[in-house]
Amino acid sequence: MTATTTDRNRTEPALPVARGPISAALIATLAAPHEPSPDVSQVQEADPYGDDLQVALYTLYEMHYRGFAGVAEDREWDPELMPLRRALEERFLGALRADVPGRDVDTVFGGLLLESDDHRDGVAHYLEHEGEVGQIREYAALRSLYHLKEADPHVWVIPRLRGRAKAGMAAVEYDEFGAGRAENVHARLFAELMADLGLETRYGHYLDAAPAPALAVVNVMTLFGLRRALRGALVGHFACVEVTSSPGSRRLAAAMRRTGAGPAAERFYTEHVEADAVHEQVVRREVIGGLLADEPHLEADVAFGADVTVFLENRLAAHLLKAWRAGKPALLRRPTDDGSPTQAGRPCPSGRPEA
């Protein structure tokens, strides 16, 4: 998104550009509190994976992170906005439950763990072997919506766990936040990656460039994080990310070397190759194992969280690869210009996440 250029030290991004009637009404009421609250009746007709709903949900969720310039901090829990948030969440969550079949934990993670590193249909493999610098910059701009707050959504689950699960989750999060060293916080490492690629490192800067499939990937983390009832799904999501991260990060590190992106760009992914190989074991054995030992009834939720991660990542991968293979930008605008919007791709088959 575009922030004002007069204050380079501000930490709050500007409100995003609306992409439909729901997001337009929400942004209007956040910008001018005297505006009426958005009409929730429109939500049931909205595409649950579409731009309007995902921008509106992202905007509401961002109030729990950095907020927005010019929006009062106490609007984070404004009771007049809660009906809209609940309606948006239920529409999104209802679609996910309909589109992602129920499975058991062993089936889900058995497939993920057995997957070969030689995964030739994903974004990481494409960038490693074919990706151009412009496509790598697009990918980094898009991923910045999460990586500049990396691990933050998952912290919400820690107070909801106990014993082995809590200890294991805290250990992994400690590494994500730099193991006590500010210069090693993963969000900071990603900002350095972006600087190597000549991208703007300001938090939230590329929101208006991100297509709906990218917003859905980020939104689902906060959806799971803010609902105690979905703590099992958040653990499943986190575990899926950690289990699948190391092979993809290895390919992305190779892509950075091949294109000469820079040492900080390569370091970010190299760090994840090493760290996530260890995290995979801790999350699988201690976090999931500990949670299900304490609360075995959450097994279906853990599996659901992992399968949702795969489903949404594959929708995003489909969008990116369709655009890149057609020689078109994958973002609504390139990091350096104001190009025309592109169309979202269709979902990939379920399986392992392809990004």
Results as ranks from 00 to 15, higher is better:
Ser246Glu: 13
Val220Gln: 11
Ala254Leu: 08
Arg315Ala: 09
Asn184Met: 11
Trp324Gln: 03
Arg267Tyr: 08
Ala326Pro: 15
Asp106Lys: 10
Arg120Gln: 14
Leu127Asn: 01
Thr336Met: 13
Val220His: 13
Glu132Asn: 10
Asp276Val: 08
Gln44Tyr: 06
Gly67Thr: 05
Asp208Lys: 05
Ala254Pro: 00
Leu207Met: 08
Ser144Tyr: 06
Lys322Gly: 11
Arg202Trp: 04
Leu114Tyr: 10
Asp337Val: 01
Glu90Gly: 01
Ala303Gln: 02
Gly168Asn: 14
Gly260Lys: 01
Ala151Tyr: 04
Gly110Pro: 09
Ala255Met: 02
Pro33Glu: 12
Pro38Thr: 08
Gly111Glu: 13
Val283Ile: 14
His319Lys: 05
Arg160Phe: 07
Arg160Tyr: 03
Ala95Phe: 00
Asn314Gly: 08
Met82Pro: 00
Thr309Ala: 03
Ala330Glu: 04
Arg231Glu: 13
Thr222Trp: 09
Tyr174Val: 03
Gly110Trp: 09
Ala233Met: 14
Arg257Lys: 08
Ala261Ser: 09
His272Leu: 09
Ala344Met: 04
Glu130Cys: 09
Arg250Ile: 02
Leu291Ala: 03
Gly290Ala: 13
Val310Ala: 05
Gly232Asp: 04
His129Asn: 12
Thr201Gly: 00
Ala28Tyr: 02
Tyr49Phe: 15
Tyr206Ile: 07
Pro211Leu: 12
Met221Ser: 11
Asp117Gln: 10
Arg160Ala: 15
Arg333Tyr: 11
Glu89Trp: 07
Thr6Tyr: 03
Arg315Trp: 08
Leu127Thr: 02
Ser249Asp: 07
Glu73Pro: 08
Pro296Val: 08
Pro211Gly: 13
Pro353Cys: 06
Arg333Gly: 09
Glu128Ala: 13
Gly131Ser: 06
Ala239Lys: 03
Glu183Ser: 13
Ala140Ile: 01
Asp196Trp: 03
Leu88Ala: 06
Leu88Cys: 14
Arg346Cys: 04
Leu88Ile: 04
Leu316Met: 14
Asp118Met: 15
Ser41Met: 13
Met194Asn: 03
